[in-house]
């Protein structure tokens, strides 16, 4: 079980809302804290990978169940 500091539920939302919720969720967190975010949008697997790559946040883990993606994202250290 992955530890996290904050949880955001973006299930049943479609592109680009999961990414926007993720960005919003990260905005008031500290560097190196971990956000857990769940999504059902089938495109979110690729989108979250691209989001993390571009923004410098680290995608620590992705759990896939039948139709839910759970991402654990470590916020970029803004030092």
């Amino acid at each position: 079980m992955m530890e996290f500091d904050k949880e955001v539920d973006a299930r049943n939302l479609n592109c680009p809302l999961p990414i926007l919720r993720c960005k919003k969720g990260l905005s008031d967190m500290l560097g190196n804290q971990t956000l857990k975010i769940m999504a059902t949008d089938p495109g979110s697997e690729k989108d979250f990978a691209a989001f993390c790559k571009q923004t410098g946040h680290e995608l620590l883990q992705l759990d896939k169940t039948e139709n839910v993606f759970t991402f654990y994202i470590k916020k970029r250290n803004v030092a």
């Binding site: 592109c15 680009p16 990414i19 926007l20 993720c22 960005k23 989001f51 571009q54 923004t55």
Partner: peptide, 11 residues
């Protein structure tokens, strides 16, 4: 609006 909001979220 989709592209703009997403791009802004990506910095």
């Amino acid at each position: 609006f989709i592209l703009a909001s997403t791009a802004a979220a990506m910095g």
